[in-house]
Structures are given as C-alpha cells and as structure tokens.
Design a protein around this nucleic acid. Structure first.
Lengths: 207, 207
DNA sequence: GCTAATTTGTGAAGAATTTCACAAACCGCG
DNA sequence: CGCGGTTTGTGAAATTCTTCACAAATTAGC
C-alpha cells in the first residue's frame, strides 16, 4: 500500500468521531461537505483522504454513516482490543490510568510499571505498581501492544530502550524529549510544554 | 514577517530544550549538525528554520549555545510570564494544575474554573475552584493570556465560546473535538485518543 | 423514463515543506 | 598572513500535501 501521511490518519480519527456523533443523532447518510464543515477542513480533503482506502460513497447521495464508520474503524485497526501498559506512576500516569477515552475506544490498560523501588508494590488507582525489571517476563505471559511513557525526561530514553527490548512496537510518549527507536517501532509524542510554546509564539507574533 | 509554518515552531521548541541540555553540560558552541542529531532531523532543516528569523551562527564554528537559546526564547515569546487558567476541575485538570513543566517555562497557573455548582468553592490541588460565571469579571481585575480546556467533549465548544467572549486569545484544548474560534484566537489541541488511534493504525498497517 | 440537481472519485495544478548543494565566511595554526 | 578544514546561510530542486475542477454516477421529481 502507498504510504499514508500522518495528517491523513489524524483526520480519519476525527472523521470517525464525528460519524459517531451523527450516528447518535440517527442520521443515515452524510456528504463529504457536511463532514468537512464539522471538522474544519474541505470536502475535497475528506474525499481524497478516504480515496486512499477505497470508494465508500454513493455519488449524488454521500456516505452511509454506519458503513463509513465501520470502514474507518477497520482502517484504523480498532476492531481488536489493544493492550496498554503505563510506565511511570506519577501524576500524568495517574490521570491516564483511568482515562475513559482509552477504554471507550478499545484501549485496555493492563498494568502500571515504575522503576522506583519505593513505588513498586504500592496501590496506584486500581493497580498495583509493578517493577520495570519484571516487564520482559510479564510480557511473555500476557502480551502488550502499546506502552505509555510518563516518566521524567531524564530517564525516558532509557525506559524506552527497555520497553523496545521487551518487544513492544508502539509507544505513546509524554516525556518532553525526542525518542530514538528502531524503524519498526512507532512513537507518538504528546508534549504539552511545546504546545504552550506554540501558543506563546502565536500571541507574540500576531499580525 | 513571512508566515512561519507550525512545524517550524515546534522544532524551535525542541531546539531550545536541547540547547538548555547542552548549556547544562557547559558546552559553549554547537553546530547545526549536532543539534539535528539530537532532535532527529537534518542540519539543513535546522539552518533553514533559524534562517527565517536571522543569522545567529558563525561559519566554521557553529552557534553560541547561550546566544542561540536566548534568541529562541525571544522568538518564542518566553521572555514574559504567561498567565494561564484551567477550565474543568477533573482528572486531567488536576494533573495539569501542578505540572512542573508549565512553571519551569514561564507559564503560571493562576486559577481553576468549573461550571459545575457542586465543584465551585471546593479545594482542588492548591486552588479553590471558581465559578465560570465569574470569569469575565475576574479577567478584568487580573488578565489571563491562555485558557486550558479540560472539560468533557460535549461542553467544550460552549466553554470555549465563553472563554473567547471573555477576551482570551489562546487556548490549549484537551477535549477530543475540533473547536471553532475566530481567526484571531489560537488553538492547540492535544487529543490522546487520536494519538492512540495513530498507533493502532501503524500497528495494523505495518508493511 | 427523462431531466435537473447532487455528490463522489480523481487526475492535474498549485502550494507548502524539506532536502540538496555550494559559495561565502570564519577559525586555528604555522 | 595565507592555507586547510569547518560550518553557515540560502537559492534551487525535489518531494509532499492540499486544492481545484470536472466527468461519471446516482437520486428525486414529474
């Protein structure tokens, strides 16, 4: 398959969210124009994005809401339940451990890890914090698809190396550093300080 | 000034972070090549990004670490302290209220708001939750630069309308929706479910 | 069943971003 | 002070992403 741009995938996620909204309201079909209006883009963009994966619409009519949302779920790989661990039992890890948005979309948090001996064994939300040293062994018994990294920046790369060595191939990173991983590992970084700096730039360099 | 791409601004943030790291290690100068290696980009990209704002390097030598980080702080508007409020006293709002990364970079959380009468007046981290209805009035007394939105998706747009009406021109949005705002308001959205779906897509559509 | 009104799917054009490649500038050393 | 070794700054080329624009397909009305 042709390489799909990251921006396209992000928009597919958005489209799916809006389709669910329209589905909830009982709408049967939707045009690329309506979908675009809801998501702040253009109808051509919507059609182009979808065209990478097939032809899902009916000319003159638009898209069937249930069909298109099913197709998007399939494309995004949301048919199965993904198993997620959280590494780093701090504030952010805590907020994520029970974030409803994860569960709702098929991402199941199965365990929380930390390298700090003082935290290992303690209660953390509804989890008992496990020792990072046990990760490799645990994974053999119950596989993990995605690791969420919520440790301080200084140790993030080290932790990621461990996680990759244990065989995990997808990482959601909350530490404010650029992580280096092998080509077959996917990383998404959420960097709140960077977003704030983007706002600071915008406020400073208006017009 | 020529319009600066969002991707450029994001990289400037990263460069600044790495410069601070190098500064901490006492390095006096750095080449575009070294900066690029640390940040997972190319030296040409680094030089091009910087060239939009001026010529900060010395040929044959590289960039002075303290000078360049000073310039970047200036460009990004980090010279002043930005006043931030958090709207939505839930889990995410709580994790953010004391996020050290904010403070370290000059973003000061001054208050936490919520529309839920049950929460107004209660202690929340070290803040007392204020009523959204009071926002406009409060802002007249002590100005606010940036609003962090950590409310449920269903009410996010309504809350943002209030915030914009109160005169705030920069928004960091954690609700999983595309917000609609006037042209002179900047919005950055952090959407964790979307990032996870990006990973799901990558895992599903490997080669 | 014909016509007018929609809306898709997609090549081609256009815009934006990244990479290339090289002259110009600078340092250090003898 | 001149030479060899670096590294910047930047037009031009290459690539990637978005928008345009229109034929083809479909529906609805009559």
């Amino acid at each position: 398959m042709k390489r799909i741009a990251e921006s396209t995938v992000r928009r597919l996620s958005l489209y799916l969210r809006y389709l669910e909204e329209f589905e909830g309201r009982g709408l049967a079909t939707i045009s690329s124009d309506e979908l675009a209006a809801r998501g702040g883009t253009t109808s051509a963009q919507v059609r182009k994005d979808l065209s990478f994966f097939g032809s899902f619409g009916k000319r003159g009519l638009g898209y069937s809401v249930p069909e298109l949302s099913g197709r998007l779920r399939e494309i995004l790989g949301l048919g199965k339940e993904w198993r997620v661990i959280i590494v780093g039992a701090g504030k952010i890890g805590g907020a994520l451990a029970h974030y409803r948005g994860f569960r709702q979309r098929g991402f199941l948090v199965t365990a929380v890890y930390d390298a700090d001996a003082a935290k290992v064994g303690s209660r953390f939300e509804s989890f008992t914090v496990r020792d990072m040293a046990r990760l490799q062994e645990d994974i053999r018994r119950e596989p993990v698809d995605i690791a969420v990294i919520s440790v301080p920046a200084e140790v993030a790369q080290r932790v990621v190396d461990d996680v990759v060595r244990a065989g995990i191939r997808a990482i959601l990173n909350f530490a404010p550093v650029q992580l280096h991983v092998p080509d077959d590992v996917s990383v998404k970084t959420v960097n709140m300080a960077m977003e704030l700096e983007g706002l600071s730039f915008a406020l400073t360099n208006r017009d």
